[in-house]
């Protein structure tokens, strides 16, 4: 047995002292850039739906109830806290909070719902500045997600009734 090596290992181990943290008992502070649960600020949001179009998990739904009222709903079920919504938001209405202990028995606790009064452009129906070319790639008209049953409707399978959509906005069914 390599006794010397064993003794060296033991000394090495004991020298370090206790390093485990009493985590659940005491909260551990997180660094400033930490990405926790995104928080949507209805006061800043202009309803451009860039977050919804860029969400890799497709967890942000957009539904226009009528010309003047847009609902943006964040579900938070599959959200991976990647922070893309905060990246692309032109108004910084989405911030990544430091809140990561989000375990809950009621999944609805995680969702956030924004009801936005929109003043639309009379000519094109849009109401936000021209996005960057890369983002423009994805903005094929507005999304009309099924907010009631909390599901995202795939672009190429948009099976919404014509009646439930606003007439002067072209739905892109590619």
């Amino acid at each position: 047995m390599s006794l010397l090596s064993k003794i060296r290992e033991t000394v090495l181990c004991l020298k370090a002292g206790r390093v485990t943290l009493p985590y659940p008992a005491e909260p551990r502070p997180v660094p400033p850039r930490f990405r926790g649960r995104p928080i949507f600020d209805a006061a800043k949001c202009i309803g451009c739906a860039g977050c919804a179009n860029n969400c890799p998990a497709r967890e942000i739904l957009v539904h226009d109830v009528c010309q003047e009222l847009r609902i943006i709903q964040y579900l938070g079920r599959r959200c991976t806290f990647c922070g893309r919504c905060a990246d692309v938001c032109p108004e910084k209405a989405v911030t990544m909070s430091h809140d990561f202990e989000t375990a809950t028995n009621a999944i609805a606790d995680l969702s956030q719902r924004l009801e936005l009064f929109m003043s639309t452009c009379q000519r094109c129906g849009r109401c936000f500045p021209e996005p960057s070319p890369l983002e423009r790639l994805k903005l094929k008209g507005y999304r009309f997600d099924d907010v009631a049953s909390e599901r995202w409707i795939f672009h190429s399978k948009g099976y919404l009734d014509a009646e439930s959509t606003v007439a002067d906005i072209r739905i892109d069914l590619d």
Binding site: N54, C55, P56, R58, T80, C82, R84, L134, L137, K138, F154
Partner: peptide, 10 residues
């Protein structure tokens, strides 16, 4: 389903 910039996250 995803877009070019969604895929890195996936």
């Amino acid at each position: 389903v995803l877009g070019y910039n969604d895929i890195p996250i996936m």
